[in-house]
Amino acid sequence: MSLPRRHVTALLVAGALTAGLAGCASGAPGATGGSTAAAGGSTTPALTGTITVFAAASLKATFTKLASDFEAEHPGTKIALNFAGSSDLVTQITQGAPADVFASADTKNMTKLTDAKLTDGAPANFATNTLEIAVPPSNPASISSFADLARPGVKVVVCAPQVPCGAATDTVEKATGTTLAPVSEESSVTDVLGKVTSGEADAGLVYVTDVKTAGAKIKGIPFPESDQAVNTYPIATVGTSQNKELAAAFIATVTGSEGKKVLSDAGFGTP
């Protein structure tokens, strides 16, 4: 009885649930069904073991909290976390790194993994992120809008188009017809923030969540045009996982109400 039940749970949380199976899981929708299954753990053998979660670097704060909450809620489990750039993580997983869950900062990198048939079921989108202008607290160039970034003499640092935040920048530029002349196209959000916090650059384009994480060293300036490029974060169980029920349970926490709260506190939007 327990084996098929667990299998069902995994399917549920992976968002692959179809109406035909819904009946077995009290007819709950995917997300809440996950928490039902987790709660039902008290009647079935408890979750145990260790899983490794590969998550995009921008998820470091939120996933660290969610993992420790999860471990507290399910004694005997251990969530090991590995944060890096999404494309690095995909490369590592395709090269055989022992990951159980992959949470990407964009759909593009998740698609690489699904194309390689390395996910177990379809990925679930659990968060969104939009761009925000980051300036030093003193805002030396008096930036107040996206158009200000294109002013001559303003030193803007952006992500290179090859990385997700750079792709989003590109999209906003195209949609608004504004052309930026950045002094540098960095390979990561961290490098953009570094240039802004050190005062080398007048402004940078990063995600809302990055501005929140940076705290007082950075001032964030939201701009309406950021709607043009909404970044979606998908999560999925890795096909080679040895502990798919635990992986599914963790994904359920992320996509569930607790995850939503932690993520929105950090500035993420809901998909």
Binding site: V157, A160, P182, V183, S184, E185, E186, S187, D191, G194, K195, E200
Partner: peptide
Amino acid sequence: LTFAGSLQGVTRTLPL
């Protein structure tokens, strides 16, 4: 990467 940034033709050397 830390000091000069990365811009094609200006600071983006081969390793970058």
